[in-house]
């Protein structure tokens, strides 16, 4: 938590125009002063949006990892990101007049459609993790080919915009992005915590869970829906930021163990931290160029994924 605050502060302080830390805090508390525009209108909303996006992705990843009993599951791996990306790119290219502010709905629809498709295709007397992962990769490939096709037909300006969106950037995120995202988390997160005990049961084998009287497929469907809601709303606001949903749950597991009611909040905080950190690093390393946050998370996340693959014994 405090690490989060530190990064948040760093976000406010650094950039093309640097602000003294104490001034920054005073500006946030009072809402006025010399640096009010830089801090309140540019940097604070950007950092806060990043935080929420990270929380959403991390929660979604945690749910998916628990219900699939697989440490490799994450919103990106099962194809949610690519669904959202395909939908957004299609709209951006084919309907050039479409207002940018409506894009989140499109992204959410795309993510939900991809999730539904994967769930239906991998349904065969119950779902199976490996099948879901493989079908996710297949869906990702199809969505990817559609995206490349649209990128070849669109005008270059739109194409550049679309690639930046796909890379998962927090650039120019304002309160307009923050407020619509907040309710998703504020409403769904307590709900998820209420269900934390049920989520724990998924860590047992299917048979024992059934023995405890849990309606397994129903609950699995419900949790999947929650995961889609968290990931979809996040992707909608910030584009595809990969691997946060993979890494944050692992770190949380390492810190507080596998009980969901403790793991979920920690994972959410860590997810927020990761995204803010990635955004900060992306802003600073190559300044004045900005590297989208999503790219930074891939650069760090992919090696971690390889490590996991080499280490884990399951699958």
């Amino acid at each position: 938590m405090s690490a989060n605050l530190v990064i948040l502060l760093l976000h406010l302080v650094t950039g093309a125009r640097s602000v003294p830390p104490l001034e920054a805090i005073r500006t946030v508390l009072s809402g006025s002063g010399e640096y009010a525009f830089t801090v309140m209108d540019l940097r604070l909303p950007r950092a806060m949006t990043g935080f929420l996006v990270g929380c959403g992705l991390a929660l979604s990843g945690t749910i998916l990892q628990v219900i699939t009993r697989n440490p490799l599951a994450s919103p990106g791996v099962i194809g949610l990101n690519s669904g959202a990306a395909a939908a957004v790119v299609a709209v951006m290219i084919l309907v050039p007049t479409f207002p940018m502010s409506r894009l989140p709905f499109i992204a959410f629809g795309g993510a939900a459609a991809a999730a539904a498709l994967i769930y239906i295709l991998s349904w065969k007397k119950g779902t199976s993790t490996t099948r879901m992962l493989l079908i996710g990769i297949g869906i990702t490939a199809m969505a990817g080919s559609l995206i490349t096709y649209w990128l070849t037909v669109g005008g270059i300006f739109r194409v550049t915009q679309a690639s930046i969106w796909m890379a998962g950037s927090l650039y120019g995120r304002t309160w307009e992005h923050f407020w619509p995202l907040l309710p998703w988390l504020v409403i769904l997160f307590p709900l998820l915590l209420l269900l934390a005990r049920t989520l724990d049961i998924f860590q047992l084998a299917d048979e024992s869970a059934l023995g405890l009287g849990v309606r397994l497929e129903l609950m699995r469907g419900l949790f999947l829906l929650l995961a889609v809601a968290f990931a979809g709303s996040s992707v909608a606001m910030a584009g595809t930021i990969a691997f946060v949903g993979l890494m944050a749950p692992h770190m949380a597991h390492y810190l507080v163990g596998s009980r969901s009611h403790r793991r979920l909040p920690i994972a959410a905080l860590l997810g927020g931290l990761l995204v803010m950190l990635a955004d900060l690093a992306g802003r600073l390393i190559f300044s004045p160029h900005e590297i989208p946050a999503g790219l930074m998370t891939v650069l760090f996340g992919a090696p971690y994924m390889f490590y996991l693959l080499l280490r884990s014994r399951t699958l």
Partner: peptide, 12 residues
């Protein structure tokens, strides 16, 4: 890609 999906289902 559908072929890959088909393989995934058969593999299981």
């Amino acid at each position: 890609a559908p072929f890959l999906i088909y393989l995934a289902q058969r593999k299981e």
